[in-house]
Design a protein around this nucleic acid. Sequence first.
DNA 1: CTCGTTGCAAATCATTTGCAATGGA
DNA 2: TCCATTGCAAATGATTTGCAACGAG
Lengths: 149, 149
Amino acid sequence: MIAASDSQRRLEGIMQTLRSRGQRVTPQRVAIMRNFLARLDHPSAEAIYSDLHAEYPTMAISTVYSTLRVLVELGEAAEMSLATSEARFDPNTSDHCHLVCLNCRTIVDLPLTECARARPMTSTLSERGFTPVRRLHQVFGYCADCGEA
Amino acid sequence: MIAASDSQRRLEGIMQTLRSRGQRVTPQRVAIMRNFLARLDHPSAEAIYSDLHAEYPTMAISTVYSTLRVLVELGEAAEMSLATSEARFDPNTSDHCHLVCLNCRTIVDLPLTECARARPMTSTLSERGFTPVRRLHQVFGYCADCGEA
DNA sequence: CTCGTTGCAAATCATTTGCAATGGA
DNA sequence: TCCATTGCAAATGATTTGCAACGAG
């Protein structure tokens, strides 16, 4: 169980980090971060935007996007999206995982044995009544050619 | 090593499946499928489109998209994209994996131990000179509420 | 007072769609 | 012939950007 005070404490830490970086802590940012950190789901920018619309009728969705980007940069949010803006298609339909370069967008296949061992999971999934269709395991990072930046 | 004849054989199988379903095997589809199946990378629709532009100057990119969708439906291509069209953000930055419902788009967290055990992988990655930044492990399927359709 | 941030609208960009013309089966 | 598919252009939808006004430090 996650106490509300936890996300409150986390929020305060983030605010402090922002100030120490010369970035500003505005009422909009606080509202967005508070809403986001208290959530147990995986919201879209739009979801947060609608949540806050009653309280902040003039808030722009671009502000939500930019605040979320700040959180991702600080490591306080994980973005669930492709590293690439466009869909990529894989002719190899066997179970394997991908190394995705954040710089040049090259995608390299890795046999599952070299990447992670999948548990049967069937028990966990059926317990939850979840019917799996396909998996996607991606490791984002920088390839040999692109180094670290 | 993958021989060209392999993807040729695969192509012929797909063409046969299409015909048996009353779907048509057009020159555009053959060209797109041949190009796609022979690839060792993970192309975008645009990449295939530019490849074929010289040979088929009037081919529309919407045709590439629709043919790729056919291949995905046949299980001959894996689409690397979010199940959701919009980005989702996760306030939980610890290592875990996601059950993503293809119908209602609900995303559920699963502790790594229940989903797959990650190998250290450090060796494999360093061998390849890959610097990992973050991982994403998603299982797409249908949640208990949405059943199988 | 400064300069990072906001709100708004317009711009982008990938992907989809509507529809008449085309051409596989 | 018939109807699935194509090409084209317009529509859509998520996200980004330009910029003047604003306001946190």
